[in-house]
Structure formats: structure tokens, C-alpha cells
Design a protein around this nucleic acid. Structure first.
Lengths: 123, 123
DNA sequence: ATTTTATGAAACCAAATAGTTTCGTTTTTG
DNA sequence: CAAAAACGAAACTATTTGGTTTCATAAAAT
């Protein structure tokens, strides 16, 4: 269900370093294609194609405003990645003491997950 | 040390669905190339090449025993992925609304850093 | 000693990737 | 209206990818 076998999934989308940089940039807000392109050493068309791939993976959303097309981050598909990762965390959490910081996050997640059992709808 | 810019990084390694299945299989223990190949519809040589890519990314380790080469999971490089992901977790509050508690810290950082350009994208 | 098994290297191939340049369309600006 | 700006589609190219088959080598089994 989460693993819809579309042409461009999240794993593929984030495999490219340029696309990861695009995501990082778009975390900052909404940008037009030209504005984005100025931050990269490749052509506008190349950037545009990367954005299309990110959009197909659901990682960005586009909005037309006049002659501009603006893109913004949509991080939701990264949940699939997180789920995938979570499976492997059991294998490393005992090994790596150096990840103190991120292990802390895990603790939080674990606590929250436990809280699910008696959660009150807060929305 | 984790972020060595080698030819096959973690992001690239896990982009391929076959390689993800390999990792999943190897989570189960140590397997010889032939044993692994029997679980896949592709040739042994193809599996072998995938394993090499995984090994270059540090995600599996190999051990020769007699004429066999056995591979096993090494999840440590996934930490880089986790770190990458952790940056974006602040943005997907819909899915992990319950993490608000923790995310508050991150939001503070984000606001201070990006005060000028911060835009709220409600949907 | 011979054969079988396990494996990687090499050569090859089709398709996908990441990039380019060119061109047409739409919207804004002068 | 005419020119410029913003963009995507299309055609083209070089490289990478994921797969194959073939072959050589080392270890195990007969």
C-alpha cells in the first residue's frame, strides 16, 4: 500500500545528489524554477526535469502563478523512508553509542508509539 | 568519516528495489552468494554485482569461507540516511503530529535561522 | 586425478539517466 | 502591439545501470 510501484518512488528520487540539494533548498519555502536554477550549475531545463521527478515522487508540489511555476517541499513521502529505516534500527541501536543524539529521538518515538495505546484525539 | 564521497553512497545503494530486498534478506543472517541468488529471479552474477555495490556503500560485509563468499548486513551506514531524514522530520507535522513535543526544539532552530524567509504552507 | 561447485571478472547489450540545445507557448512588461 | 521572461516539450548525446552469457580460478567432493 505504501509501496506503490510507481515509476519514480522516493528511494529513487533522493538517490541523486542534485535532487537532494533541491529538497534542501525548497525546505526554505516556495521558489520559481528560474530562481531555483540560479542556485545550480546546470541548465534550467535540467533543474526542471529533476523537479518533475521529485513531483512524481510526491516530494514537491507545484503551483502555477502567472507565467511562473513555483515549487515547494512536501516531506510526507519521506515517511515511507522512515518506516523502511525503522526496520533496520533494531540492528544498530545497540551497536552505536556515538549516535546519542539520534538515539534520543528514537526514545521519543518509542514513547509516542506507546502513548498510541491510550491516545486522546488532540485534533 | 561517514560522509565519504565514494562512488556508491548509501542513497544510491538503496535506490534499487532488488538491493533493498537483498538487505532485507541479509538482515536474517549470513548467506552465501549462491544461497542468496536462489531467492531472486535474476542470475547469480547479477546478484553478485548488487552485493558489490552494497559492500561499497558499506551496507554489507563479506567473508570468505573456503570457496564460498558469505555476506551479512551492516546497517551502520544507514545512520547517514537517518541523519538526513531527521532534518526533514520537522516539516511533516501532519504524519507525526504527536512528535510536536520534540519538534518544538527544531522549530525554534528553524525560525531563528530562517526568520526572514519563513513561509507557512497550509493545505 | 578428475569433476563439480562457488565465485568473480570480462565482454556485451538495452534501457534509463543526466545533461545539453532548440523551439513553441504563455504571460508580463515596455 | 512588440519584446522579453518563464517555462515545458522535444530531440539529441554521453554515461550509467541492470541485466545477460562466457570464461577462468579456486576449493570441495568423488
Amino acid at each position: 500500500m505504501a509501496a506503490l510501484s510507481q515509476k519514480h518512488d522516493v528511494f529513487h528520487a533522493i538517490a541523486d545528489p542534485t535532487r537532494r540539494k533541491l529538497l534542501q533548498l525548497l525546505a526554505d519555502g516556495e521558489w520559481s524554477v528560474t530562481a531555483i536554477s540560479k542556485q545550480f550549475p546546470i541548465s534550467r531545463t535540467a533543474v526542471s526535469k529533476h523537479l518533475r521527478i521529485l513531483a512524481e515522487a510526491g516530494l514537491v508540489q507545484k503551483r502555477k502563478t502567472g507565467r511562473e511555476t513555483r515549487y515547494r517541499l512536501d516531506p510526507n513521502p519521506l515517511c515511507e523512508l522512515k518506516q523502511w529505516l525503522s526496520f533496520y534500527e533494531q540492528f544498530w541501536e545497540n551497536k552505536l553509542a556515538m549516535l546519542q543524539h539520534y538515539v534520543e529521538i528514537e526514545k521519543h518515538v518509542a514513547e509516542v508509539t506507546d502513548m498510541n495505546k491510550y491516545k486522546k484525539n488532540k485534533q
